[in-house]
Design a protein around this nucleic acid. Structure first.
Lengths: 214, 214
DNA sequence: ATGTGCCTGGGAATTCTTCCCGATACACGT
DNA sequence: ACGTGTATCGGGAAGAATTCCCAGGCACAT
């Protein structure tokens, strides 16, 4: 085999990161060289450490893992990022892959699969955990865009933050755009989802799994 | 120190369980003697293995971790169960403790805190992770009614309708008052609950049980 | 009687939303 | 290379909602 694989772990829960670190490191060929707990930190650390693979939780507070993935790929086009999530819905998988993820793994997968996934991604190939592959196979192309996919990536992002309780101004600051833009996004989101009130917007976000159930 | 501590891990994600297992076992004094991925399995395995401590994720598919906790305690009143969750809201903590949990730990806690928590719970004491303790301390006793009581009856009613997705105008019509009045009520509700955004208002209503969970 | 708190709304200032518009950028098929 | 489509970003203006301050009517307790 080749040299050891270096990994950057991105998850907002410290205990979870530590668990993954140990899980990966006992495998023998993997070294976790860094950890990050947010999208911003993930981007910075990736640029500094240039790990072979980033293992990133898809649901981070504020800016999502997918957005973090995009930012990394913008500046490091050759980055190998393995997305990791509790969601196995085809919609999430597709968004992750569309955004350029090198692999997608669910937390329901067997532990050794995670090691295998990192190794596969590090070697330049793509990796999908079996359950995910099945979910995708069952809905070939565009099947899942019955309702949810009418939202664009940015709209997704804005909806997530709105559902988390952020104000338009906070979102604008976090995404680095004009509040007016966020407001305009919100309008189109509401129209696309048919959400007149904030409640309906939140329900939609819950349906899409953008935020954990309350 | 005393003998090794035996632990039953309960979480619906295999990878997560494996991570925790490694995290706990390298500490030296802890042995994970079993794993379960559902409430039913947790109960069965607890009865068979009689571990010193069960570490249980609060959010399990189907029957929740708290319900699993209750079932275990019904038949094994001396069971020591450490609840483990990504939520640090006081309401979750209180429910867990009311149900008889020996401790509550958030996933945001530092990794070694988990080891400490297991050891503390095994020794017969209770354990709360620092962030959780703080959340509870801020709302001492009967905390869950500290907030709602400041709302007047009318405000309560308006909040309920708002949370159900009604517009201000609809509410005004339903209550037979001027929309302006409803709007004014809403303002004071927001102020009293500290809700900046519509979403936060909704979450408050959920916390107060004004509407069924989404 | 008097104070207190709630429900009710008006008025004015402010902020947000909506709808329409154009600019830029990027991907895609021809 | 070129047009086409789409996403993102924002400006402008009209309209709607929110906030803050205020005040009358009412119930209720001291």
């Amino acid at each position: 085999m080749s040299a050891r694989v270096t990994v950057l772990l991105v998850d907002d829960h410290a205990v979870v990161r530590e668990g993954y670190r140990r899980l990966l490191e006992v495998s023998g060929g993997i070294t976790v060289v860094g950890e990050a707990c947010s999208a911003a930190e993930a981007y910075q650390m990736f640029c500094i450490l240039t790990p072979d693979v980033a293992v990133m939780d898809i649901s981070l507070p504020g800016v999502s893992g997918i957005e973090a993935l995009r930012r990394i790929l913008t500046h490091q086009p050759k980055a190998r990022v393995l997305m990791f999530s509790m969601y196995e819905d085809a919609i999430f998988v597709r968004r992750a892959l569309d955004a350029g993820a090198a692999g997608y793994l669910t937390k329901a997968a067997a532990p050794r699969v995670m090691v295998e996934a990192v190794a596969t991604v590090a070697s330049g190939r793509r990796f999908l955990s079996p359950d995910v592959a099945q979910a995708l196979a069952l809905r070939p192309v565009g099947a899942e865009r019955a309702t949810p996919d009418v939202l664009s990536a940015r709209e997704f992002e804005v909806l997530k933050l709105l559902a988390e309780g952020c104000s338009v101004n906070q979102i604008a600051q976090q995404l680095g755009v004009n509040p007016k833009t966020v407001s305009n996004h919100q309008s189109s989101i509401r129209q696309k989802l048919g959400a007149e009130t904030a409640t309906q917007l939140l329900r939609a976000a819950l349906r899409l799994g953008l935020i954990p159930p309350l």
